[in-house]
């Protein structure tokens, strides 16, 4: 089990456009990844509806978890994405 904490950089939070880009990236990893706000339930990170339901605004901390041989590389990639302002892209 690998785990990383990331801070949402997109100006308006993890809403439709940044959420869509993130879901595409999670889906592309081919492994199950969960996302949670501290103390909250672990949700499927490949679900745009779950991400939107997190209500994670700009600056919110989220915890990503996954398993497998490649877990560290996968999470590093996803953290980089979350810490990029996808609204500005």
């Amino acid at each position: 089990m690998a785990e990383r904490t990331a801070r949402i950089a997109s100006a308006s939070g993890l809403h439709a456009r940044p959420a869509k880009i993130f879901v595409e990236a999670v889906t592309a990893t081919g492994v199950p990844v969960t996302i949670a706000v501290p103390g909250g339930p672990e949700l499927n990170a490949a679900s745009i509806l779950s991400l939107m339901g997190l209500g994670a605004g700009h600056g919110t901390e989220v915890v990503l978890r996954t398993e497998g041989d490649d877990a560290d590389r996968v999470l590093d990639e996803l953290v980089t994405l979350l810490e990029t302002d996808l609204d500005a892209a």
Binding site: K20, N44, A46, S47, I48, L49
Partner: peptide
Amino acid sequence: AAVLSTTAMMAADPTLTA
């Protein structure tokens, strides 16, 4: 097109179908 493809992603959402 961006709105439509996000809507398509919602239609196939894994949490929703689960």
